[in-house]
Simulated scan of single mutants.
Amino acid sequence: MTQRDPFYDQLSRVREFDQLTQTDRFIPLPEDWFVGVSDIVNSTGLVQAGQYKTVNMVGAAVISAMMNALKGAAFPFVFGGDGAGFAVPPQDEAAAREALARVAVWAQAEFGIEMRVALVPVTDVRAAGQDVRVARFQVSDGVDYAMFDGGGVNWAEAQMKAGAYAIPPAAQGSQPDLTGLSCRWSPMPARNGTILSILVSPVAGASDEVVTQVYDRIVTLAQGLERGGHPAPAKGPGTAWPPEGAALEAHATHGSGSLGSARRKVLFEAFVAWLLIRTGIKLGGFDARRYARMVGENADFRKRDDGLKMTLDCDPATQTQIEAVLSAAKAQGHIDYGTATQDTAMMTCIVPSIMTDDHVHFIDGGAGGYTLAAARMKGRSV
């Protein structure tokens, strides 16, 4: 059996997000690793058509498929709203290619969504003058998330969109293993004014020191918000029955079985969870209210992904200050940015087990925040 590369396992965890504005907290990936990227074709159009929850589910499916393909082994990944980025050592290259190919054919078969997927050697990224550096942010005692810096993931995504490094879809009927992928939580209404989605990227040739100062100012402003701008309430997101995402989750998890049976299973499990949260009753050692609190603690509402991404529950004054900082930095030629506002945030989850604390939860704006912000960064009207 091939020994796994210990690089990622040995990375120290950073517990304060404001430290991740500093480039020296990021460590270069080993030379023989690969960067995986994915995105949904015409995600902006799908969001505008009201399919933002589907876009998020399909985007997160890549991470779910990779987690299951690697049998729970830790690897760096980041959720981007309509896609994902990740990195794997050479011994996991074949598993990554297979998982990406299966997700692409599944997305088309289940939802009629075209998905681009690619795997790019780190050597090619560096030959192009970019880099892939990674850090681990410990959001709670049970979960940490990878953070990326160096421009390499963005470069890989641009190459994928240009047709390079493409992985063709798997054979028709192929199914990725999406065990644990779910979206049962209710939308989280803004408590302080609006849900503000923010994307910030440095422009080519920008000074690392100046860009770091911009990130610092945005992060400092966000930390002044209630709970640092976390969109989930302290007690966790709410639940409703039936859950809005039941049909989507059934599409993700039915495999070769009946879609109707999968939907009934989702509805039954969601009803039990809803009842336990409402009553506080514990079942077989499972404390649903504690689990809901952990969902909020484990969520990824802020991240570094070759830039800065945040989904904030934001008051009007702070929003004005953040947008003023971003506008000035863009005018000075240091960064590019996009923002989007909406009334709610939403959550897509990967839950290996409800009895452990290693479940991960991806937050985005409830109207497709990161996708809309990215479109505005590129100058498209939405």
Rank of each mutant, 00 (worst) to 15 (best):
M1A: 15
R4P: 05
P6S: 11
Y8G: 09
Y8D: 12
Q10S: 12
Q10C: 04
Q10H: 14
V14E: 10
F17D: 04
D18I: 10
Q19F: 15
L20A: 03
Q22G: 07
F26S: 05
L29Y: 12
F34G: 09
V41D: 14
K53Y: 15
T54F: 15
A65W: 10
M66S: 05
A69F: 07
G81Q: 06
A84F: 12
F86A: 10
P89A: 15
D92H: 12
E93A: 07
A104R: 05
W106T: 01
A107W: 02
F111R: 06
R116I: 02
V117H: 10
L119A: 05
P121W: 07
V122S: 01
A128I: 11
Q130L: 00
D131C: 13
F137D: 05
V139Q: 09
V139G: 13
G142Y: 01
V143E: 15
A146M: 12
M160H: 13
K161R: 09
I167W: 06
S174D: 14
P176T: 01
C183D: 13
W185M: 12
P187W: 04
N192W: 08
T194S: 15
L199N: 03
V200P: 03
V200R: 12
P202K: 12
V214K: 10
I218E: 02
L221R: 00
L221C: 01
G224W: 10
G224I: 06
L225Y: 13
G228I: 01
G229F: 08
P231Y: 00
A232Q: 01
A232E: 00
K235H: 14
G236M: 00
P237M: 04
G238E: 04
P243S: 03
A246D: 08
A247D: 06
E249Y: 09
H254Q: 10
S256K: 15
F268P: 02
A270Q: 07
F271N: 05
V272F: 13
W274Y: 08
R278N: 15
G280E: 10
G284K: 06
G284M: 00
F286K: 11
R289Y: 03
R289T: 02
Y291P: 01
Y291Q: 09
V295L: 09
G296A: 11
E297K: 14
F301R: 03
R304P: 10
L308E: 04
K309Y: 14
T311D: 05
P316K: 09
T320N: 15
I322A: 07
V325Q: 07
T341S: 09
T341E: 02
Q342Y: 11
A345W: 02
P352M: 01
M355C: 05
V360L: 08
F362N: 02
D364G: 00
A367T: 13
A367I: 11
Y370P: 03
Y370H: 09
T371L: 13
R376E: 02
V382F: 11
